[in-house]
């Protein structure tokens, strides 16, 4: 078959752009209905006083946003979300880094360790919350038993009904589930760090700790930044864990933004202000993503 026949065959076909559109039509349809239209409608809703119980749903412009931004409760839950996100990201990155360093070593049983670490990752968020609720039960929880056996507490503690222990345990429960994936990502990054640099430094007499600090860490910076971006964005969206573990309590001390959106919208049935709050959360996420991305970009160019 000659080239000219191939060209003829090609000419008989529809253009690549049209073909791509036809091929991706089912996927694009799903994404349009479940993502694109809802986003547009959410923006629209956020400009109306839209309460389910009221018949009148007047246009109010940016009033919903104004109300939220002048409401102390919003700033409280934003602060709670930020405290949660910063703590969680700090714990996840630190532990994952050391765990990845361990898994990067060559030793019998490493494969097993890696495989077993997938278990927390595979557990659904709701079940993870249920698990920690059980571990932290005020009278029957194994944490109380362990801590009192170790002499750390004199009497059993209701961990989730007081601050700051409620926040600390929420952070631990969240990190526990999310460390495995972060570890795998960092491990993949570690495997690109060249062994020759390490060997050279070893000859120079650098200790393992010095090598980690001066060779591994700088070379791992792009990977760590990517993990930082993803973990921050995901931590700001937290909802399932809070719903089951603390319901925002005690008081409003673990009421993160996700929880506030849920309460405003689906308990108080104020869809207008709920949408505005969701838009604000979306914008914060977007700004963070752009900010981190430019940071990463600059780091790579240096």
């Amino acid at each position: 078959m000659s080239r000219s026949t191939m060209i003829i065959l090609k000419n008989k076909e529809i253009s690549p752009g049209k073909l791509a559109l036809i091929f991706s039509a089912p996927a694009l349809f799903v994404l349009t209905v479940t993502v694109l239209i809802p986003i547009i409608y959410a923006v629209y809703l956020s400009l109306y006083r839209y309460k389910l119980k009221r018949a009148k749903k007047p246009f109010v412009g940016l009033q919903n946003y104004e109300k939220i931004l002048t409401d102390e409760k919003f700033w409280d839950s934003l602060t709670t979300s930020l405290i949660f996100a910063v703590s969680v990201v700090g714990v996840i990155i630190t532990v994952s880094f050391f765990l990845a360093l361990l898994l990067d070593q060559d030793f019998p049983g490493r494969g097993w360790l890696r495989a077993l670490l997938l278990i927390p990752w595979a557990i659904p968020d709701v079940v993870n919350a249920l698990l920690w609720k059980w571990l932290l039960h005020p009278t029957f929880g194994v944490m109380n038993a362990l801590f009192s056996m170790g002499g750390l507490i004199d009497e059993y503690v209701a961990w989730l009904s007081s601050m700051p222990s409620a926040m600390i345990w929420v952070v631990i429960a969240y990190s526990w589930k999310n460390i495995p994936l972060a570890t795998l990502l960092i491990l993949a990054g570690l495997q690109t760090v060249s062994k020759t640099l390490h060997e050279a430094a070893m000859v120079e007499g650098a200790s393992a700790w010095q090598r980690t600090l001066n060779i591994t860490l700088p070379l791992l910076r792009p990977t760590l930044t990517v993990v930082l971006i993803f973990e921050t964005i995901f931590a700001l969206k937290v909802f399932d864990l809070i719903y089951v573990l603390t319901s925002g309590g005690p008081g409003r001390s673990t009421a993160v933004l996700g929880w506030s959106i849920y309460i405003n919208t689906f308990k108080k049935l104020d869809f207008g202000s709920g949408s505005a709050l969701a838009m604000i959360l979306g914008l914060i996420t977007l700004f963070l993503a752009i900010f981190f991305y430019s940071f990463l970009d600059r780091g790579e160019r240096q």
Binding site: V35, I37, G282
Partner: peptide, 20 residues
């Protein structure tokens, strides 16, 4: 745009989707 979809908080989509 396919990647951006992953960044949208589910809670922002939930309100209109539940109404629909």
């Amino acid at each position: 745009s396919i990647l951006v979809v992953r960044l949208v908080p589910a809670l922002a989509l939930a309100i209109p989707i539940v109404l629909f």
